[in-house]
């Protein structure tokens, strides 16, 4: 069909990666928290804070990388509150997570209203880092190998985290904090500190994902713009059950299905758009449930740890 030209296919693959990357970062972050026993429901708020902070810094400084750093910092700040309330003070992880998300929604909308509601500034396209030879390939070249540095760094997080979980003491401590925190405590490792580190790392990753969405995905910030991406990240992490690579596949699959849905509509396939829009959610659930059944969630997930309690 003449519609499937190289520019159109490139746009679809590019769109899939751009849509999937924030989910990848959010999912990897959530996975780390869950591994340590913290169900981080506040990740949507962390992404939104990261989106706002990232956009603000990028717009004021004129630097996309600085903006991404700003977004990571804002996500980390929201995560610090989560760590304080849920890990240090042992409050309900679900209640605090929801409260932080609502607070982030309200605060970022208010700040946007004060600063940008009359001007809606937009950022220029981010500079890319083309990989020699690969970037010249048709369709996948510009979509995958001629992207901003953050895209490569985010993808590199997957093997890095896999190795961290498998081969380092901190990785083992994370797993023990989620599976048997009392045993970790008995081994002389501070459970609360381990969990707090995991939650903070989650905030940094989610904040970066939010900043990517605002700076590169949209080129601007609007209130509520994460549109539930954090919750999709939670689903990916839950279904991937501890395996970073599965989060990557899930995020890319989700992004590809979004592009597929767009392609079907643009081609003019006459089926209800609700059915088409359901494809990404149904596909990710089906694939991850089918292939991820053997892994299990941490035994102490969602359970606050208090020394001496059993």
């Amino acid at each position: 069909m003449s519609l499937f030209t190289e520019p159109f296919l490139t746009a679809l693959v590019l769109g899939a990666v751009t849509a999937g990357l924030p989910l990848l970062l959010a999912g990897l972050g959530e996975q780390m928290s869950e591994r340590a026993g913290v169900l981080n429901v506040g990740i949507e708020g962390m992404m939104l804070a990261g989106a706002y902070g990232g956009f603000l810094v990028a717009y004021r400084s004129g630097s996309i990388p600085l903006g991404l750093f700003g977004g990571a910092t804002c996500g980390g700040l929201v995560a610090a509150l989560m760590a304080l309330f849920c890990v240090r003070l042992a409050l309900s992880q679900i209640v605090v997570g929801i409260a932080l998300t609502l607070a982030a929604e309200g605060l970022t909308a208010l700040l946007h209203h004060v600063q940008f509601s009359q001007t809606y500034p937009r950022l220029p396209a981010a500079a890319t880092l083309p990989i020699p030879l690969l970037s010249a390939m048709p369709v996948v070249g510009p979509a995958l190998f001629d992207r901003p540095l953050i895209v490569y760094l985010a993808l590199a997080c997957v093997p890095a985290l896999s190795r961290l979980y498998r081969e380092t003491h901190f990785g083992l401590a994370l797993q023990a904090a989620g599976d048997a925190p009392a045993a970790l405590d008995a081994a002389g490792v501070d459970v609360l500190r381990t969990r707090m580190a995991a939650v903070l790392a989650t905030g940094v990753l989610a904040g970066t994902g939010g900043a990517f969405m605002a700076e590169i995905g949209a080129g601007l910030f609007v209130p509520f713009m994460t549109n539930g991406a954090g919750f999709i990240g939670i689903v990916l992490a839950m279904l991937a059950r501890g395996r970073p690579l599965w989060v990557l596949w899930g995020a890319l699959l989700f992004g590809m299905c979004l592009s597929l849905a767009t392609a079907l509509q643009v081609v003019g396939v006459d089926i209800p758009s609700d059915v088409i829009q359901m494809i990404p959610f149904a596909a990710v659930m089906a694939v991850l449930v089918a292939f991820g059944r053997r892994a299990s969630l941490p035994a102490a997930l969602g359970v606050p740890y208090r020394r001496g309690e059993r």
Partner: peptide
Amino acid sequence: AYSDAAGGKRVTEAVIAAG
């Protein structure tokens, strides 16, 4: 997706690429 600015950009880019 009323507030999905990133989705708006992504889908519009695809429609532009379709001609």
